[in-house]
Structure formats: C-alpha cells, structure tokens
Design a protein around this nucleic acid. Structure first.
Lengths: 247, 247
DNA sequence: CGGACACTACGGCCGGCGCCGTAGTGTCCC
DNA sequence: GGGACACTACGGCGCCGGCCGTAGTGTCCG
C-alpha cells in the first residue's frame, strides 16, 4: 500500500529547497516572472535558477510562456497556490511557535494578492463583509452569491455570472498571515481584476503587497455595507526593497 | 523580502523525503501509530524511523503521546492534514498526467478517513447530499447548518451544536482522489465518530479504507434524502474497529 | 551582421543527510 | 529481578543534489 507516498514526497521535495521555495513564494501573487528575476529573488546564480525552474516545470508546479528572448514563469494553477498556502500556514505557525518572529512584513499582512485574488487583512475584510451581509450561500464546493450578493457585485461593475461552471465561483481560503479565511475562486479573481482596473487597489513597483486607495475604500464601502478595513491603505512609505538573498 | 521562503522550505523539506512522506500519509487517517508501525510502513529500520519522527515532531507536523513503552504519533492538527491534502492533489494530478497510473487503490477511492472525517466517494456523497438538500449555509469560514440540516444531524444522533466556536463546524476540503469536495470540520468529525460508534461504517483491520455497512447506508439514506453512494459498501469483509487513540 | 543578452547544458566540487550497526535507557511482564 | 521489548543516541558510510564556472544556443537590436 501507500505506493503514492513517493509522489507526495516528489512534490514536497520540489518545494523543500530554499531557492525553489523563494521562487514559488515570489510567484504566489499570480504574476509571471522571468528566469533572471527569479534567480535574483531566490538569491542564486542564473544557471542554478534555470535548473530549478526546469525541475519545477517538469514537476508540474509551474507553467511557462516564451516571449522573445524571455521566458515567463508562473504557477501552474490555483491548486498549486492552494497547496503552497496550506504549507505557509504551517510555516507561519512554526515561526510563531519558536518566536522566530518572521515579523510578517507588515505590508504583506495588510493587503496582498494570493495567486489571483486578495489576501491579508483586505482579503479577510471583504470575506467578512460579504459573510456578515448574508451575501454568501453554500453552493457547489464553496459559495455562491445570494440575490443581494449579486447586486453588490453588479454595483461594483462585475458580472456575477462570470465563469459559471461546475466549480463554485467563491471558495474560502485560509489566509496564512491572518489565520482566517479570505475568498478565492473565479469571482474573487474577477473582483481583484476589477479593483486593479478601476484603480481601487494599486500594486507597488516592487514587492507583493498592494494598497487600497481612498477611491477603492469608498467603492467597496458603498457596495459592501459591512466593509471594515481600517488600515489597508495606511502608511507604507514605498520603502526600497532591502534586497536580501535568503538567510 | 521573502525571508519566509526558508520557513516554507523547511516544512516542505520535512515532507519531501519518501520515508517521512509515507509516514505522514499513513497518519492521514487521524489514527495514532507507534514508531515501529511507522518504521514498517515507511520501509526503513526503526532507528531511521526514530530519527525521522524526531524531526517531524521538532517541525511541528506531528504530536506524540507516550503510553507505557510505546509512543503514539499522530498528525499535529487539522492544518497539517489540510496542507498534506493540498500536496496530494498535486501529486495525484501529476501521476495522472504522466500515466504513472497510481491506480488509486480502489478501496481508498471508495471510502476512507481523512484525518478525522470521511473522504473518497463516501465523503463526497455526504457533501453532495447535504448541499443538494440546501442544508448547508455559508457561515464563519465555511458552512453552518440550516434548520433542515440541524434536523438531519439530530436524526442521526448528532448534536448539531457540538463545537460551536469561531471556526465553522463544516468546511469544504478538496478530495485528492475525487477532485471534488468533501466535508471537513468538527461536525464532519462528529459524524464520522457517530458512524463508527453505530457500526454504520467499519474500519478494516489494515489499510486506511473504510466500509459503509448496509445499516449505515440505510441510516444515511433515511436522514439525507439525496444520499447516493452506489458502491461505498461494496466488497471488503468488515473487521472490528481497531483501537483508536485520539479523538 | 556582429555584439549584447536571456537562457540552457554540462561538469566538477562538496556539503548535507538518509541509511543502518551498535549500544544505551526506560517499561512491561513473568 | 531478569529478560524481552520499544524506542533513542551516536557514528561512519555513501550518495544525492545544490552550487557555480565555462561553454553553447536562440533572440533582439543597431
């Protein structure tokens, strides 16, 4: 029995290298990055990174798009992001338990993208507001929208029927920094997309954190009466990244 | 940034060894096993297993309970099971993609326990029946029960209010063999517990697969009108529930 | 068409760690 | 109390694989 143990080990082994883990984590925001960028973020030479990327590709964790002389790597799909999130929850717990105090970069905990949707306190606030208003109803393998929820999304300029299919358009996803759920799924992705388009949320030049603009706060508050996210647009002088190869 | 990459890598590295992966997978059913049993299941000598277990303990993936001259190891918590499930989804996908044909042991795909609740076609059938009847309502970070759902659970002899707390009593969990959701959470655990107590589901002496008995099929069908699980009680002569440490 | 650039392929170095043998500690049972 | 047993500690062997240097291929640009 358990002939599938090795398969599990194969996947985990891929993630279990610091350089590869850094790359995967950098890709968690759903963007596609080039091999060189990833080599820098992982703190290894480009040749080394190239080898790692080939293995991640072979293992099905990444997908690639060649474009001119660049190759853009991204996570292969939402399942990959979900699996990584699951491990990050454990990692965060461990770090906390030993006071390793990864003082979770304040910016990331405030608001970030997780693959294709929002996470951090912003993501949790959106989840909580929809839940408190009773806009979420159980459906498929997650949530669907009630009539009120559909109105709220429509008010935000999002077609509540995008991507209707077998799988639920909304799904809870445990947030590793908050240890509370935010919303994933195609509708959550559409919401994030709309927020970027409308300038409600902006992505700084560097880093994975995002920022809720005043206009965004207004728009979300109007459409979601219970929306409360005190600090999602707070501070954050766009500090230059300290550039650190991993410890 | 990404100083947390190495933490993620640490966790993944623990899972990324075939022997440790086998052990973790064997513990996925929520039971507690001794070091010797685990060494056998992992296919390594007891000394080697002891070392692995110490590392998994140190890494926070396992918990241990000393009992006489035995030490019973079990998964440290539901988050660990969830993280492993996430990776198993990827592993199953990979295996499929390459025709490695881990012909998922038919028994496991039929019905098994996943940490403390049911998975496989049995778990999915329960999920689907509750969902189809409209018994699930969005709440907390997952589902709660509607009035009808509460009645159904009461009819099964389960207090629908066990473990009411911040976290939702029911939560969808992607099933790696079916690639569709089953139900996790405290109420799902209570349901599994009740099924074992009542003899509706029995656990064979060996392996992680379980079997739905005719009585169990009758009880579930009565309480959940939409319940359909054609083959969950097929074959497989039952055996008395082997001792189970740990709720 | 030649040079810069992104990326990949190959080879050698070396550190980490998985493995088991032997030996030691604590527990149960007769 | 003595022997069996479950488990752990330590040490040495062997290999996997991460690392980078050098070299090669494809692409863009002037």
């Amino acid at each position: 029995m358990a002939a599938d143990g090795p398969y599990l080990a194969q996947i985990a082994h891929l993630v279990g290298d610091p350089a590869r883990a850094n790359m995967l984590q950098a890709l968690m925001d759903g963007r596609a990055l080039t091999a060189k960028e990833l080599s820098f973020l992982a703190g290894v030479a480009p040749q080394t990174a190239s080898g790692h990327l080939a293995r991640l590709l072979e293992g099905g964790l990444l997908a690639v798009a060649a474009q001119g002389r660049h190759r853009y790597f991204r996570l292969a799909g939402p399942e990959v992001a979900a699996a990584l999130e699951g491990m990050m929850v454990l990692a965060a717990g461990q770090a906390g338990r030993r006071r390793l105090t990864v003082r979770v970069e304040a910016d990331l905990a405030r608001a970030r993208t997780c693959y294709d949707h929002f996470a951090g306190r912003l993501g949790v606030a959106i989840h909580d507001a929809l839940m408190a208003q009773g806009h979420l109803v159980a459906a498929g393998d997650g949530y669907g929208l009630s009539a009120g929820g559909r109105e709220a999304f429509a008010a935000l300029g999002i077609d509540p029927d995008v991507a209707r299919g077998r799988r639920a358009p909304l799904r809870p996803c445990l947030d590793w920094s908050e240890r509370r759920p935010h919303l994933a799924g195609s509708l959550a992705a559409a919401l994030a997309c709309r927020c970027f388009e409308a300038g409600w949320v902006v992505r700084p030049r560097e880093g994975r954190a995002v920022t809720l603009t005043p206009a965004g706060r207004a728009a979300l508050s109007a459409a979601l009466p219970g929306f409360r996210c005190e600090d999602a647009d707070a501070v954050s002088q766009p500090v230059p990244e300290p550039r650190r190869a991993y410890a």
